[in-house]
Amino acid sequence: MTAYAKTKEIEDKKTKFGVTALVGLVWIDNFGSDNELESVFYGWKTTDNSTVSNRELRILIDDANKDGIIYPRSNDFTHFSYYRKGYRFSASTTADVTDDRNKGSITVTAKTTLWN
């Protein structure tokens, strides 16, 4: 039997009050528990009357936040290398969103599992 590593990608996307939030991970799914996170991507897209503030990105390796929280300053789509080894990875973004009538928050989470 031959086992080989396979690069995988997972993302989560949600829209609220005219704001679409996106977060995702690219990782190598090695045999066993020694997987490799390669990169993280995220961003927010707004409509004409919606805004985003208080952006936050959390990246977890094996359910622990080892590198702190990132506070992005813009809505721009960003894809960056983020090499870490571990069993499970997750990334989530949270932000406050508003439109002409509503105010709230939006959270999206991409999480690796045994089945993706």
Rank of each mutant, 00 (worst) to 15 (best):
T46H: 03
S92I: 03
T93Q: 08
F77G: 13
T47Y: 05
E38A: 06
D67C: 00
D96H: 05
K45E: 14
G43Q: 06
G43N: 07
S33W: 06
R58F: 02
N65P: 05
I61V: 14
G32Y: 08
F77V: 10
I59C: 02
I69T: 14
F77Q: 12
I61W: 03
Y42Q: 08
A91I: 05
N35V: 08
N30T: 06
R84Q: 14
S39I: 04
L37R: 01
Y82H: 12
V97G: 14
A95N: 08
T98I: 13
N35S: 11
Y42T: 09
G43F: 06
N102R: 12
T94I: 14
G68S: 03
L57Y: 05
D48L: 15
K66Q: 06
I59G: 04
D67G: 02
E38H: 13
R101A: 11
T47N: 13
E38V: 13
Y83G: 10
S53I: 08
V52A: 09
W44G: 04
I61P: 00
R58V: 13
E36F: 07
T47P: 06
R101T: 12
T46G: 01
T93I: 14
L37V: 03
S74P: 01
E38F: 03
V52E: 04
T78H: 07
T78M: 08
Y42G: 08
Y83R: 15
I69Q: 09
R101K: 13
H79Y: 03
I70Q: 04
T93P: 01
S53C: 05
N54S: 13
K45R: 11
K66G: 00
K66D: 03
F80S: 02
E36D: 09
T51G: 05
A64N: 01
R73D: 12
S81R: 07
Y83Q: 14
G32D: 11
Y42H: 14
R55E: 04
L37G: 02
N35T: 08
A91S: 07
N49Y: 15
D96P: 02
R55D: 00
Y83H: 14
D63N: 13
E56N: 11
L60D: 14
Y87V: 11
D96N: 08
Y71V: 03
N35W: 09
R73I: 06
D34P: 00
S50A: 15
D67L: 00
N30Y: 07
N54L: 08
V97H: 10
